[in-house]
Each structure stands twice: as C-alpha cells, then as structure tokens.
Design a protein around this nucleic acid. Structure first.
Length: 105
DNA sequence: GATATGACATGTT
DNA sequence: CAACATGCCATAT
C-alpha cells in the first residue's frame, strides 16, 4: 500500500535518519524512502512543516550540491550556519556531495 | 477536471 | 560550466 499518507510518513522517517555531518538530496531521500521520483514532494513537505519542527531540513540540498533557498536569503544563511556547526564545509556557496552525501545505511 | 505552483532532477544547448 | 527545456508529483485554486 502506498497511499499519500504512507508516502509522507516514509519520507519523514527517512529525513529523520539523515546522520549529523551528512547531507542528502531531495531525490535521494525520496528514493531511500521507497518513493522514487517524488523529490518535489519532499520539498513540499518541508515547506509545509514548521521551521521549528524537529526535522533536519538543513541537511537537505538539491542535486547540484546547493541550497534550495535563494542566495543571500536569511534561510540559506541559517542553513549554512547549522551545517557548519555539524562540520560540513561550504565552499563557493556549495557543498561537496562527494564528501558529505548520505546514501543510506 | 483543467491549470498553475514549487525547498526537484536530468538531458541538451 | 551555465542557461534552458522537459519530465515528475502532490497541492491549491
């Protein structure tokens, strides 16, 4: 059974599994959650979730290794700061997927 | 049910 | 490497 409700839960689950010091792309999350192709849905869920929610939204970036938020935006600042605090280095406004991408367990 | 929107991804120029 | 086009998927109107 894969109704929207379960898909949502599966994605939230996967989000909570992203380890500290690692990042993950929207598409990768969808795939790991068994919801291949629903990358956009992942973004939708995060957007609808309160920023205060206990979700590691800051560990989620797009396939280009960049923040999904516009450059210089407040959100991006916060995101980068949080990532830095976890030991993730951000170079030229982008993150090295090669080093920090989480591909599951 | 048709059209528009978005915290995406990928292939082509 | 960057801009553009196309495909995808769940919601909103």
């Amino acid at each position: 059974m894969n109704n929207n409700e379960e898909s949502k839960q599966a994605i939230l689950q996967t989000l909570l599994c992203i380890p500290e010091g690692k990042v993950c792309t929207y598409g990768q999350i969808a795939t790991l959650a068994g919801q291949t192709g629903k990358a956009r849905y992942v973004g939708f869920i995060l957007k609808n979730s309160p920023n205060n929610a206990a979700l590691p939204w800051h560990r989620v970036i797009n396939a280009k290794g960049k923040s999904a938020f516009p450059d210089h935006s407040q959100k991006q600042q916060i995101q980068f700061t949080k990532l830095n605090e976890e030991g993730i280095e951000i170079v030229n406004n982008s993150i090295s997927l090669k080093k920090y991408l989480w591909t599951g367990n």
